[in-house]
């Protein structure tokens, strides 16, 4: 599986100034990839993305308790 660009989350600085112009994620866009293709594939970008989504293996505490009544 090929990817382009840096693999870390990064801010791309505007060459003419300090303002960042783009935020880049470690997550790759797999939304157009059929699941069977993913199951068969390995690759560093894929492994990093898997680590990102399974890194919080402990169940995330649901955020509960908003009382919407006035």
């Amino acid at each position: 599986m090929g990817t382009s660009g840096p693999e870390e989350v990064a801010v791309h600085a505007d060459p003419d100034g300090d303002e960042p112009e783009e935020w880049r994620s470690v997550m790759i866009d797999l939304s157009a990839v059929p699941l069977p293709d993913l199951v068969e594939q390995d690759g560093s970008a894929l492994v990093r993305a898997v680590r990102r989504v399974t890194g919080d293996a402990a169940p995330g505490e649901p955020i509960a308790g908003f009382n919407s009544a006035l």
């Binding site: 090929g2 660009g5 960042p20 112009e21 880049r24 994620s25 997550m27 866009d29 293709d37 970008a45």
Partner: peptide, 14 residues
């Protein structure tokens, strides 16, 4: 299969 990392412009992120 070539995939891209997600990117978001700073204005959109703000």
């Amino acid at each position: 299969m070539t995939v891209q990392p997600f990117r978001l412009g700073d204005t959109a992120f703000a």
